[in-house]
Design a protein around this nucleic acid. Structure first.
Lengths: 144, 144
DNA sequence: GTTAATGCAAATTGTTTGCACTTTC
DNA sequence: GAAAGTGCAAACAATTTGCATTAAC
């Protein structure tokens, strides 16, 4: 579960991880960017420190996700995007027409979760869910 | 919409496409394999004709999807998988523990679709949906 | 001083593209 | 025989890995 903004550093150490400037920068970048791909995170971090490497970004995102500080979702068929896990759990609606991303509170999916549990014994990870479709403005198909 | 098994060849021509042995083989492979990545499709087709190329597979899957004969979903963080679009529209549950894939009829998501429409004016593409989580047997987490 | 973390370069994986050659219609 | 489709090789993008060096504890 999301650690409070104050003690994530303690959480790091408890797991034997170390606190490095790169890790702070990358976590900060994810917070600031909202939904960002590893590449976007890298670009953002490099505005502050030029010597950060792509592999560090990948490795760090993995660690931060393991700690529950960030989460990822697949908002395109390309790279995943990462976002902060503090705040309410939510899932995403992505419009195929205009690419808009709508964040929806996990509670909205509660009945759906119920059904999947009851009928299939399945416990969904709603925070990872991405639903593709069309938003109000793009209702008539205009992209395959 | 899914064309009947009989006249997909006509559908091809109506759009100005041509009927080639590769296209027949690839469609057949998707049907036989259930859920298959482009790589798996290629391997399967090559058991019959050794001279099929990966780029042909990618290009053909695209065409077949445009015609509504097949669909794709993202059942892993890796390559997409393709499946036949004939038969009932369904979405997928993927267990993070054992990787099992459960196909669920789209009707199960109808109330969820309603809510997203009512609250967000969003029309989801349920056939593209993949829900990650844990199946009955894997309920206690055992893989990150 | 140990050990984890980083940077770098090279390897991998999945996919796309340009183009000459081959089919289908 | 015109146009679409294919194979091939090369380009690309995203990600991963091995390893020597650096930095956290």
């Amino acid at each position: 579960m999301p650690e409070s903004a104050a003690d994530w550093k303690a959480a790091l150490r408890e797991k034997g991880y170390r606190l490095t400037p790169q890790r702070e920068l990358i976590l900060g970048a994810v917070d600031e960017l909202g939904h960002a791909t590893p590449d976007e995170v890298l670009a953002h971090v490099r505005q502050q420190v030029s010597t950060v490497n792509a592999s560090t970004v990948y490795r760090t995102l993995e660690v931060l996700e393991e700690l529950g500080l960030i989460r990822h979702a697949h908002l395109s068929d390309r790279a995943p995007t990462y976002h902060s896990a503090r705040g309410h759990e939510h899932f995403h609606l992505v419009c195929r027409g205009c690419r808009e991303v709508i964040s929806v509170d996990a509670a909205t999916a509660a009945p759906f979760v119920e059904v999947l549990g009851a009928r299939h014994g399945f416990t969904p990870d709603i925070g990872h869910l991405t639903v593709f479709g069309r938003c109000r403005n793009c209702s008539p198909p205009e992209e395959p």
